[in-house]
Simulated assay, not measured.
Amino acid sequence: MAIRRRHVPVNQEDEGFFASMTDMMVGMLFLFILMLMFFALKFNEAAVQITKTAKTLLSAEDTRKEMLEKLQKSLKDRGISVEIDIENGILRLPENILFDRNRADLTGKGRDAIVVLGRSLNAVLPCFATIPGEDRPASCPDTPHTIEAVFVEGHTDGDGDDALNWNLSVQRGLQTYHSMIDGNPKLVLLRNTKAQAVLSVSGYGKQRPVRPNDSADNKRQNRRIDLRFIMTTPKASQLEQVEHQIQEGHQ
């Protein structure tokens, strides 16, 4: 007795093959969508962290701006006119209220002005730094920002020998620093978040003029003392974490 074979129509075999291929492609598409969502989420986390870091930096600059304006007003109310450079965080003291030309010793008027400056700093800086064993003043603004350092910088004009100008700028910075802390000894106790001293001194000679040395008035403006305020920036570990997140987002 002959056995009759059952033949499957060709079109049914094709339909089964295409159905299997469709299932596989749908599965691959689903995996691709999951991976895309994962990388999008990681990239978004990095973007959020970058935004937070940027806001921290920008708001720290706003805090420094308010601090400089407060110091400028405080000094003006006491008869001392100073300039402020908001962008670079500088309070500028011209030579004519501090020193005689080519001299490092403060004049009597200059010494009085620096004592007043020290009092203003003594009233403001403890809100943005710490003094070991003392609480933060209750009158301080509500801010998370702190000061990393305040540099007392000496500068000269472009005249004369380089070595002489270097020495003169350093000596003027030191004289200003000592007069500030002699009248306000607590300033030397100020510490940043690393428990390091906040106040320091530097001299730049004629290397950082604010005006071209082509006129008597410009030279006078270049002979100056700058107080440069440096705010504490995000920790290196925070920046490394952001960089790592960015790298993961691009992998």
Rank of each mutant, 00 (worst) to 15 (best):
G160D: 14
L75V: 02
L93V: 13
Q171T: 06
R172G: 05
Q12R: 14
Q171N: 12
R101C: 04
I84V: 06
E45R: 12
R101S: 07
D100S: 08
K70N: 08
A195I: 06
L227A: 11
R5T: 07
T63E: 07
T233L: 07
V198T: 00
D23A: 07
F17Q: 14
D23W: 05
G203L: 00
P212A: 03
G79L: 02
N122S: 12
Q49S: 11
R111Q: 04
G203H: 02
E87D: 03
P126D: 01
S20L: 09
D135C: 06
S81A: 04
T56K: 05
A149C: 05
I3N: 13
I147A: 02
R103C: 03
R92E: 10
W166V: 04
T232E: 08
L93M: 07
N122R: 14
N88Y: 15
Q221S: 11
T146V: 05
T53W: 15
E243K: 11
Q12Y: 13
A113M: 05
I97N: 00
T156D: 03
G203Y: 01
L57W: 11
I90D: 15
E148S: 09
K65W: 10
S215T: 06
I131Q: 06
L190E: 08
D112N: 12
L29R: 09
L125D: 09
K235R: 08
P234T: 10
L187Q: 00
D142L: 12
A40G: 14
S202G: 11
P144Q: 03
F128C: 06
P212H: 06
A195R: 10
P137H: 10
G154K: 00
A40C: 06
K186G: 08
I225E: 09
L189Q: 11
K42M: 11
A47M: 01
N218G: 03
